[in-house]
Design a protein around this nucleic acid. Structure first.
Lengths: 197, 197
DNA sequence: AATTCCAAACTGACTGGTCAGTATAAAAAC
DNA sequence: GTTTTTATACTGACCAGTCAGTTTGGAATT
């Protein structure tokens, strides 16, 4: 399974992902050239096309990879916890993720609300999967009475997702000198206050 | 000052702004061509270059125009109001603005947190001006004791700005069927709850 | 354990197309 | 008669994607 060949190939794909995520976070998808990605990854241009069908497919697989990781961490975070604690765990998991993969978070923030791009459908789907985990938790909170019964679950969930993203990335981009734990505290405080009613 | 000639020219520039904002909101700056902007605005390509130095300058002036408008509405909204009411007025003004200029808001959301682009400096500056109005209001609230004394004014202000943007645009993109007034209520509710401590 | 062989992985020059920006002559608006 | 706009053609740089050829890992053969 993991002989030298597949290991090597997997390594190349990983290097291409890392190069692509950094460049696309900085400049956006269209402004990032395949030549530049290849150079940053230290491979020839042909290698990009040997490993990925096209620039768009590379990006789509990158999105799947990155958001998939986030969704998995969400699932692991809430596992077995009662609603209110689970909500806090989600905020913590999201910020932990953003701290670890800041370039990907930045990229996500920039590309999430675009329309009319080829990969829009893919991203929408992935976003849905991640938010579903949040929504399940919020729903459980409403059912258990820990959250207000009139809370609009779908809206609250997507708002929570978006707010965490924007606050954390804003902090990283405009006040990188501050420790991100402060954002976490602040966000947790807000979520708790809102939940308390 | 506003003779026929300048009026006409101003009208052309306005049409170009509108065309550019729509296309860039959908596809991003790099994926939007000057030919396409010209066609959408119903003018010849040469006219774009008669009115703007370059594609980048057109975009920078667009940013200045759009954010300038927002800042002006912020200033008008808080004028003469006591801190807490002023805060509510800011949220309302921002959402009102986003409802009216949704494409611009979408564009702003996509380009705001990018690094390494020519216009990044411009946008950073403009963002600062808009947030300054919020920060003045928040500071006044802290001084008057309406807001908690230990509140980090700079952070709270930029968070407020970002959150309004992301929640509203998220709503517009992913749940356009719902009336935006609901976002306003929800956001106001959150801000009030946070302020109350 | 050295040699041969093959397919997978990778290379980089090349191609065809696209696009920002320029040029210009003529027309329209004021 | 000056400013603005049009229509069209052009240039040069850049870029996604291709492909014929090279390298590499390792399996088979001796």
């Amino acid at each position: 399974m993991t002989d030298g060949r597949t290991r090597r190939r997997e390594d190349t794909r990983q290097r291409l992902f890392v190069a692509a995520v950094d460049l696309i976070a900085e400049q956006g998808f269209s402004a990032t050239t395949v030549d530049h990605i290849a150079a940053r990854a230290g491979v020839a241009k042909g290698t990009v096309y040997y490993n990925f069908e096209s620039k768009t497919v590379l990006f789509e697989e990158l999105l799947r990879h990155g958001v998939g990781l986030l969704t998995a961490e969400f699932r692991a975070a809430v596992d077995g916890l009662p609603p209110l604690e689970a909500l806090g765990a989600l905020v913590r998991a999201q910020l932990e993720y953003i701290r670890r993969y800041r370039a990907f978070a930045q990229l996500l923030l920039s590309e999430m609300w675009r329309t009319n791009r080829e990969w829009q459908q893919t991203l929408r789907l992935l976003r849905g999967e991640a938010i579903a985990v949040i929504a399940d938790t919020v729903q459980a909170g409403v059912d258990s009475g820990d959250l207000p019964a009139d809370l609009d679950v779908r809206t609250a969930s997507s708002a929570l997702f978006g707010v965490g993203l924007v606050v954390a990335v804003d902090w990283l981009v405009f006040s990188p000198e501050r420790p991100i734990d402060e954002v976490q505290e602040s966000l947790l405080g807000i979520v708790r206050r809102v939940a308390r009613t």
